[in-house]
Design a protein around this nucleic acid. Structure first.
Length: 563
RNA sequence: UGGGGCGUAGCCAAGUGGUAAGGCAGCGGGUUUUGAUCCCGCGACCCCAGGUUCGAGUCCUGGCGCCCCAGCCA
């Protein structure tokens, strides 16, 4: 794979980096340690890329380190498949955690000890209330909660009960361990949050060794502390948890003091980035899988042909703040095009073939013409493209009765065949239905290579493929998965699914050089866009994905001026 | 009527008291054997209202608006 750095971006500047810089300058820490902490219950998406780039980026910039830690504290939702895919996706994005791979589950024993520590100090208690009762006691946003009747058990009794919870003496949900903080707090997270619950589920890593599992609040910050994380960076919805995060660190015998900072998560137009919704799209088969090229998952973007460097560039450009945001996909698309324009070799492919017979070209003859591989990359060289009496051009490049500003083929007009000859359309052949099925044309042998010795000009250059040499392929053209920029804003997000998000073009013709395309390699089909070979390809049956179309100024003027 | 966060151009986003960076999108123009790329040009008085100050997007006060929180999810 062509891995060219898209230009070295200047060091990002944002409030998190300002904080770190200050912490370093004032000696609050001497090495920066961050972590990317996914829960293995789904695939990573471009929103995660923001966090990954931040955490690994910051670590690299300040010569620290970044851990990959799985917050695997809820075995009912977590699976091995996700542990694998997450690692593959982070690596693909371009980051390396080295030996710093951790699992919150590795800390279960320590966490258990720490829970006992809390109990001994009167900071936690076993509650026999049911989930519903606990909810009822919690109060509301505006009314304080009520203390549980079990809140004042002795440390001895709590210790005994807690050890019996671990021993499996009670059924799921029968009891929980709660922090003893303040049922009247305005911050609901401080109203005696649950620290441990009884859950008989096989854990992907610890199997059936445990039947009690710590909650996020009692595992995340603790794991940070155990790993020596200095800056625990998370999204805004966890800001309310920070007082609890700090309270627990204050009351536990940790050897380090991590600090949590929050930033706003990424929102993108025409897409959804919540794990719940993405999981639903996959499970209900609205897409073919987590790696469906229409998905905003890293696996989907990869399969679609989006280069990781473009994603990193995008994340860098959108910045990092605490403001809610909705970034236009156009910004991402720009990064993809900009990168691909530099690295993608150019080839010719006709997506919607229209046969052209060049009447004055000798039958049975063919020749090879030299074509530049990438005008944007002088080192990419040239290749030979076969030419003959019958070629294919795209249906969109011919109009029998064109509007004023249409410069392509129309009866009587001369255009240039890219890297080949000037071609003049003489006649459009139609079928019984009145559809144009073939063009009868003539060419000018004097214009070989694409220039006329007499200096005459043409207003358009179109691409083509020799019929006799063409390869066939299926091309999948993607549009936004969601028609609305804000899916779900009007109700059920599923109703905003774009019914035309996938168009399969079955009978595309490719120039022979495309036979050597490698899986995932970015290629520009001239005048069309960037494409890559899909894993669904079989020998003799190529399948290409359109990563993204080229900007289309013609479509724009059409939309504007009408005819 | 509780707690937390946010409010600078259509969308992101700099700005940390001295008179509004940059990117994306859009629009106009130039170059061009991809109507692509590339190049040039065009846009804000900073949620509102008071106040402090010679001077405020930046400080103070009071409003308004938006987002998050009542999982034994993370």
């Amino acid at each position: 794979m062509n891995e060219v750095e898209a230009k070295t971006p200047e060091e990002p500047r944002d409030f998190i980096r300002d904080i770190i810089r200050a912490d370093l300058a004032e000696g609050r820490c001497d090495t920066v340690v961050t972590r990317f902490p996914p829960e293995p219950n789904g695939y990573l998406h471009i929103g995660h890329a923001k966090s990954i780039c931040l955490n690994f980026g910051v670590a690299a910039e300040f010569a620290g380190r970044c851990h990959l830690r799985f917050d695997d504290t809820n075995p009912v939702k977590e699976e091995h498949e996700y542990i694998e895919s997450i690692q593959a996706d982070v690596r693909w994005l371009g980051f390396n955690w080295g030996k710093h791979l951790f699992f919150a589950s590795d800390n279960f024993e320590t966490l258990y000890d720490w829970a006992c520590h809390l109990i001994r100090n009167g900071h936690a208690y076993v509650d026999d209330l049911s989930a519903e009762e606990i909810r009822a006691h919690r109060g509301t946003l505006t009314e304080p909660g009520k203390n549980s009747p079990f809140r004042d058990r002795t440390a001895e009794e709590n210790l005994d009960l807690f050890s019996r919870m671990r021993a499996g003496e009670f059924p799921d949900g029968a009891r929980v361990l709660r922090a003893k903080i303040d049922m009247a707090s305005g911050n609901i997270n401080l109203r005696d949050p649950v620290l441990y619950r009884i859950l008989r589920a096989t854990h992907p890593r610890t199997g059936d060794a445990w039947c009690i599992y710590p909650t996020y609040d009692f595992a995340h910050g603790q794991s940070d502390a155990i790993e020596g994380v200095t800056h625990s960076l998370c999204t805004l919805e966890f800001a309310d948890h920070r007082p609890l995060y700090d309270w627990l660190i204050d009351n536990l015998p940790t050897s380090s003091r991590p600090r949590q900072y929050e930033f706003s998560r990424l929102n993108l137009t025409h897409t959804v980035l919540s794990k719940r919704r993405l999981t639903q799209l996959v499970q209900e088969r609205h897409v073919t899988g987590w790696d469906d090229p229409r998905m905003p998952t890293l696996a989907g973007l990869r399969r679609r042909g989006v280069p990781p460097a473009a994603i990193r560039d995008f994340v860098h450009r959108i910045g990092l703040t605490k403001s809610d945001n909705l970034v236009e996909v156009a910004a991402l698309e720009h990064c993809i095009r900009e990168y691909l324009n530099q690295v993608a070799p150019r080839r010719m492919a006709v997506l919607r073939p229209l046969k052209v017979v060049i009447e004055n070209y000798p039958e049975g003859q063919s020749e090879e013409l030299e074509a530049v591989n990438n005008p944007a990359d002088p080192d990419s060289g040239t290749r030979l493209v076969p030419f003959g009496r019958e070629i294919y051009v795209d249906q969109a490049d011919f109009m029998e009765d064109p509007p004023k500003k249409f410069f392509r083929l129309t009866p009587g007009r001369e255009v240039r065949l890219r890297y080949a000859f000037f071609l003049t359309c003489r006649e459009a052949v139609k079928n019984e239905a009145g559809e144009v099925v073939e063009l009868r044309c003539t060419y000018d042998p004097e214009t070989r290579g694409g220039n006329a010795p007499d200096g005459r000009k043409v207003k358009a250059t179109i691409h083509w493929v020799s019929a006799a040499h063409a390869l066939r392929a299926q091309v999948r053209v993607y549009d936004y998965l969601f028609a609305r920029p804000d899916p779900g804003a009007q109700g059920d997000f599923l109703e905003d699914i774009n019914p035309e998000s996938l168009s399969v073009l079955q009978d595309c013709r490719l120039e022979p050089a495309l036979g050597e395309a490698r899986l995932g390699e970015a290629i520009q089909f001239e005048r069309e866009g960037y494409f890559c070979l899909d894993p669904d390809s079989k020998t003799g049956h190529a399948v290409f994905n359109r990563t993204i179309a080229l900007r289309d100024g013609w479509a724009k003027t059409q939309a504007k001026g009408g005819k």
